[in-house]
C-alpha cells in the first residue's frame, strides 16, 4: 500500500526513537488537553453557586407542640421535624436493643431527645413516607410509613420493616437558640 511505502523509515533506530517520542508526547498532550477541555462541561452540571447558597434552612421551633410534626424544605427535600412525646422517646430508647437493620442508638440520632430531625426521604427509592399529619398512617412502630413499597420507620426514624436498607438520615443541624435550628 502506498501509505506504508511512504512511511518507510531509514533503518536507523535513532530516527525511530525520536519519531516515536514525538508521537507519544503529542498524543499525551492531546489526551490531557482534551480532558482539561471537557472538565468545564462536566463541572457545569454540578450545583451552581446559587444552588449551593440555598443549602441551609432556618426553622423556628417555637410553635410546635409535643406530638406535633412539621415538614421543612432543605436542599429541595422534605425534612421532618418532630417534637416527640415522653412516650415516643421512651419507646425509641427501649428499642435501642431491638433487632435493627441499621443499628443506631436513639441518643446518637438527636441533639435534644425532644426534637427528632430527619430527612423525610425513604432510603429505599426516595418516596416521602407518611406520618407527619395526625391522620396519616404511622406504620407498625409509630413513626413513619412509606406508601410506595411499605417501609416502616420507628419514632427514631429507624427502619424496622420493609425493603428500605437504612434509617432516615439525620441532616447536619445545630440549635442556634433554644427554639431555632439551622439545618445544613
Amino acid at each position: 500500500m502506498a501509505d506504508q511505502a511512504l512511511h518507510a523509515q531509514p533503518a536507523s533506530t535513532d530516527g525511530q526513537t525520536r519519531r516515536d517520542f514525538l508521537l507519544y508526547a503529542t498524543t499525551a498532550v492531546g489526551v490531557v488537553g482534551t480532558g482539561l477541555a471537557l472538565w468545564p462541561f462536566v463541572h457545569s452540571m454540578n450545583p451552581a453557586a446559587d444552588t449551593l447558597a440555598l443549602s441551609t434552612t432556618n426553622v423556628d421551633l417555637g410553635a410546635i407542640q409535643p406530638g406535633q410534626s412539621v415538614t421543612v424544605v432543605w436542599r429541595g427535600k422534605p425534612v421532618f421535624v418532630r417534637r416527640r412525646t415522653p412516650d415516643e422517646i421512651a419507646t425509641a430508647t427501649k428499642d435501642d436493643g431491638a433487632e435493627l437493620r441499621d443499628p443506631s442508638k436513639d441518643a446518637d440520632r438527636v441533639k435534644k431527645p425532644e426534637w427528632l430531625i430527619v430527612v423525610g426521604v425513604c432510603t429505599h427509592l426516595g418516596c416521602v413516607p407518611l406520618g407527619q399529619k395526625p391522620a396519616d398512617p404511622k406504620g407498625e412502630f409509630g413513626g413513619w410509613f412509606c406508601p410506595c413499597h411499605g417501609s416502616h420507620y420507628d419514632t427514631s426514624g429507624r427502619i424496622r420493616k420493609g425493603p428500605a436498607p437504612a434509617n432516615l438520615p439525620v441532616p447536619p443541624y445545630e440549635f442556634t437558640s433554644d427554639t431555632t435550628i439551622r439545618i445544613g
Partner: peptide, 28 residues
C-alpha cells in the same frame, strides 16, 4: 441550554446566572 430559560421574564436573568453562578458558565 441546561441552564437557560426561554421566557421573556427569565431569559436575560438566566443568562446572567450562567455568567455568575453556573460552574464555568462564563466559559461556556
Amino acid at each position: 441550554v441546561m441552564n437557560y430559560t426561554p421566557h421573556t421574564t427569565l431569559a436575560f436573568d438566566s443568562v446572567e446566572r450562567i455568567m455568575r453562578d453556573v460552574n464555568y458558565g462564563w466559559l461556556l
